[in-house]
Amino acid sequence: MNEIEYLEHLLPHRAPMMLLSRVIAIGEETAHCQVDISTDHFFYDTASQGVGAWVGIEFMAQTVGCWSGYQARQKSQVPPMGFLLGTRKFSSTISQFSAGMTLDIHGEKVLENNGMSAFTCRIEHQGEVLAHCQLNAFIPPQASLAAMTQETN
């Protein structure tokens, strides 16, 4: 990726559901984003004083979404809306992410066929892997997405 794009150019999300803080790098088959955990994060729970590790699945999904949006922009297309189909083998070494942590979210494409995609994803903090999974997503072809949009209007 030659120039880091703003998240808003790559994802259809807006506050408060834009959970990522920044894009670090996007390649042909990989994406790297970061999340700053703070007490004002949308999913911060004051009772447990953290963001549940399960939210990491959405961090990973949004990182994959940035990858998809970047690929579309390289073809002069509008970043598509994708659908998280599920995860496999999600595992986390911690139950929550604490305020002050900066998380590195990595996604690597392992399969892409006819809109179906699979990515191996991981969340790191200071080089230590805290969570990982395989994420499965569907991104409708641009023509199908346009038809879906017209039907709902």
Rank of each mutant, 00 (worst) to 15 (best):
I4F: 02
Y6W: 15
L7W: 00
H9P: 15
L10Y: 00
L10V: 02
L10P: 00
L11V: 01
L11A: 07
P12F: 05
P12L: 02
R14H: 07
A15M: 13
A15E: 05
A15T: 09
A15K: 10
M17P: 11
R22A: 06
I26K: 06
G27F: 10
T30M: 02
T30S: 11
H32F: 06
V35K: 06
Y44L: 04
Y44A: 02
T46C: 09
S48C: 12
S48F: 15
Q49L: 08
G50N: 00
V51Y: 02
V51S: 00
V51A: 00
V51C: 06
V55H: 00
Q62Y: 03
V64L: 08
G65W: 05
G65V: 09
C66L: 06
W67K: 10
W67M: 02
S68W: 06
Q71C: 10
K75M: 13
P79T: 15
P79Y: 08
M81L: 15
L84H: 13
S91R: 14
S91K: 15
S92D: 02
I94N: 10
S95T: 11
S95G: 15
Q96I: 09
F97W: 07
F97K: 03
S98L: 15
M101Q: 11
M101E: 04
T102F: 01
T102R: 11
T102V: 14
D104K: 05
D104Y: 04
H106Q: 04
E108G: 07
E108D: 09
K109D: 14
E112V: 04
E112Y: 02
N114R: 01
A118R: 04
T120E: 14
R122N: 11
I123T: 03
I123Q: 02
E124N: 11
H125R: 12
Q126H: 12
G127L: 03
C133M: 00
N136E: 09
A137N: 05
F138S: 14
I139P: 03
Q142P: 07
S144H: 05
S144G: 14
L145G: 00
A147R: 09
M148V: 01
T149K: 08
E151G: 09
E151C: 03
